[in-house]
Design a protein around this nucleic acid. Structure first.
Lengths: 198, 198
DNA sequence: CGTTTTGCAATGCGATCGCATCGTAAAACA
DNA sequence: TGTTTTACGATGCGATCGCATTGCAAAACG
């Protein structure tokens, strides 16, 4: 009998990456509901509905587990905002900014996890570094869109302003300070101002 | 012999509140350097240079300790921004916004603590509630200043925009994405736009 | 078919956790 | 001065932690 998958190096009968993703999801769910410090091997195993031995089998250390979960939501958020498109730069920009807020069910699930990792990044350079990298890319991209939508002015600076704004808005939504409707209105208001003034 | 302090209810020989403040400071220092989940009774005691018994003597539970530390930095930040004044509403506004960023040594020490509590507030309503309250007050006050500095337009909405912006900017500074000089420039830029456009 | 490898479950270990308890020196009080 | 109260330091306890180890069924391999 052959391996159940074509190609090389697929282990035996289970999809290694899929299992890791399932456990990574459980990590995110624990983080979203009870915070980063509630993440223990046992809690994650229970959340995933598997044994602790399984978690250990796929992740050598807790650190590796958390780093994997971090990269997992990072890439998910990246995919989500990467899927946004529009021929009109202004519409594109608006959709992009709104995609960064906890408005859709997916974004609502991911935002608390992101917030927890963001706070941890303050004291953990291994998290801060990729976040900075992603942020820089966003600044460059959003800056490009702004430049398209509007002739002159420092587009990169406005990109930083807009992105800091949506970051803060996300946090305020997460603590219940701003609801979804108000948030969208604020984004529209600020975006309008950035694109029409100066 | 008499009590070493005039008035009633001062315990015996030590200043109860002062001791609690010292320990609360140690909590904040641990949080700032190693994050919220590094806060344990032993670490706090070591950081404060006292015995664990002392920490337990002044705080019945860890929860009470953390809540006290939270209220302590909250009131410190409140005092700090409450001390900002200026006859010119525009200058007042600028100073207020800059005071919310980790620019001064005090603010730089407090910001990581605030960020950690903010993230915890996402999953802990007992923290989120006072943060919302403080945020609402800030919106009202900043909105008032905007209304003074600028005739028409929705001042409260712009206050929310500005405050979300500085919140996000604080986080980006904390992860090393934006340095102090750029941050001040971004605040000036955004403030200028809010006050002159629309 | 037998052997090897994989994918776990189970258990145990030492460290650390929050918290309770106990003892006691000193100060306050009568 | 004797008693009480305060302010701890010290120690211990059960729970939980990350992690190492062991065992074993099933699948893959020769």
């Amino acid at each position: 009998m052959q391996c159940d998958r074509i190609g090389v190096e697929v282990p035996k009968q289970v999809d290694h990456d899929e299992r890791r993703r399932e456990i990574g999801d459980a990590v995110c769910r624990v983080m979203a509901s009870r915070g980063l410090d509630a993440v223990s091997l046992r809690h994650v195993a229970a959340e995933a509905g598997v044994s602790m031995g399984r978690v250990q089998h796929y992740f050598a250390t807790k650190d590796e587990l958390l780093l994997f979960a971090f990269r997992q939501i990072s890439s998910r958020v990246g995919d989500r905002i990467g899927a946004v498109h529009s021929p009109d730069p202004r519409t594109f920009l608006r959709s992009l900014l709104l995609e960064l807020l906890p408005l859709s069910p997916q974004a609502r699930a991911e935002a608390p996890v992101l917030a927890a990792f963001l706070a941890q990044a303050v004291v953990e350079p291994r998290l801060a570094s990729p976040l900075r990298e992603g942020g820089s890319q966003m600044v460059a991209f959003v800056g490009g869109l702004i430049a398209q939508a509007r002739p002159d002015g420092d587009a990169e600076r406005d990109a930083m302003v807009l992105l800091a704004f949506v970051d803060g808005l996300m946090m305020q939504m997460l603590i219940g300070q701003v609801d979804a409707l108000s948030a969208v209105e604020l984004v529209d208001h600020q975006l309008e101002r950035v694109l029409t003034c100066r």
